[in-house]
Design a protein around this nucleic acid. Structure first.
Lengths: 236, 236
DNA sequence: CGATCGATTGATCTGCGTCAAGAGGAGTGG
DNA sequence: CCACTCCTCTTGACGCAGATCAATCGATCG
């Protein structure tokens, strides 16, 4: 058995208009310790497709995303995932997924046997509640994404994404100085926000000239997180 | 105790690119029978806001939607709900919701005590699995909505919505002849699809002239469901 | 019969997509 | 140490999907 001592996190949105963001609780070590083995996945390689598999995939290191491919070749990125995330919670209750997962940087991924998970769910209410809560938080995040894509402009969507990444990175002890180096490029951001790469670039320029963010090399510095969050929310 | 003998359904998307749509299983009658009481909600009235409440809300008759309001007054409708749907599954594991629910027509809503639900989850694995599965299916549907809003044109989004409604209505034994009278107007469709009402109207005209749908009065007739689904998927 | 609400249509404007051409690194190999 | 290549970011020009504003039309209903 591989030991994984990190925290289990999943995707979640920045503070909803109706309350503070809820951060997923860390998995107890006897859960993380039940990872059967870890695999290393190259950047830009699929971690899994939509087929059935007897494991839950826990992202241990690196950045990943979940996405869906359209028949015409377009791609919609559904969520970015940071270390600690369970990528395929849906597997607990359904065979097949309606999305795939991709490694954005080189990733190590822990394989948690579904059988173990299901047994734990039957016998240990705390673990059951944990996984169910993670599923619910994923729901909240997806709902926020629907709002983001449906009712916000390019600039606002980008502000939302950057605020969200900052908050989640800080929750796992990174980007504590308000700056971070995302393992994603502008095309990937565009595919997540439903925009073209060119227009995403122009939106970044705009946030830069507005003094909300600064970019040095590959590093994004959030200059005014509060105002950025306000832009994301379409508030004053 | 109020008896509710209908099926429990939840929101779900039309067939994912990776497999057929999965329809939620009906709730056993001892669950539906545990509805403490039913309330009647007028059309265009809120069923609930985002605050905590000791009940799960089961839609028994009528159409409803879940939505989020932005600070600037814009509205994003997240999902339309048909009779049988549980509107606030998130309450099982979290206190506050990040959305509200609105009655689109006059609705009767069953109040299922959260305490009863939590006890049932602890003691009856089949019921636990049912509610968890419903949560997972909601996840799938939200993911499809993200794809819909992020990567499809107005015409395609509308085709998706109409296909989805048709399929879900048929699953509860309605619209079996391929036509139905939705309890929603064009503004509400627009708010769900991230479009303006005017442009939504023009998209409907387009589907009409293409011979995919016909409208007589308030009744929508789906003339070519297969082709409509292809439009929604951006395929051939 | 006015009043109200939703659907329809027209005119105009703009946010964003598309196409295409540079520009700046970072790595590679001669 | 310098060319060469490959990415990714940047910038410009142009076109279109969809927003906005506003008026009209139809149907339903006290």
């Amino acid at each position: 058995m591989m030991r994984f001592t990190g925290r289990i996190m999943t995707t979640f949105g920045i503070s909803a208009s109706n309350g503070p963001a809820q951060h997923p609780p860390p998995l107890p070590s006897d859960v993380t310790g039940s990872v059967e083995r870890s695999i290393v996945v190259d950047a830009q390689s699929d971690i899994f497709g939509s087929s059935a598999r007897p494991y839950l995939h826990v992202l241990q290191t690196g950045w990943a995303c979940t996405y869906q491919l359209l028949p015409n070749g377009q791609r919609q990125i559904v969520a970015f995932h940071l270390p600690g995330a369970v990528l395929d919670l849906d597997r607990i209750m359904t065979e097949r997924l309606n999305f795939s997962a991709l490694a954005l940087s080189e990733c190590t991924v822990g394989l948690l046997p579904l059988e173990w998970v299901r047994t734990a769910i039957d016998t240990r209410p705390a673990i059951r509640d944990l996984f169910w809560t993670l599923t619910t938080l994923e729901n909240r995040a997806l709902l926020e994404s629907v709002v983001n894509l449906g009712r916000r402009t390019a600039r606002e969507r980008l502000a939302y994404l950057l605020s969200d990444l900052l908050e989640r990175l800080q929750a796992i002890g990174e980007a504590l100085d308000g700056s971070f180096t995302p393992a994603i490029n502008q095309s990937e951001m565009a595919d997540a926000l439903g925009l073209s790469q060119v227009h995403l670039n122009r939106s970044i320029q705009r946030l830069k000239t507005e003094g909300l963010v600064a970019i040095r090399g590959r590093r994004y510095e959030i200059c005014d997180a509060k105002r950025l969050r306000q832009v994301a929310k379409k508030a004053g």
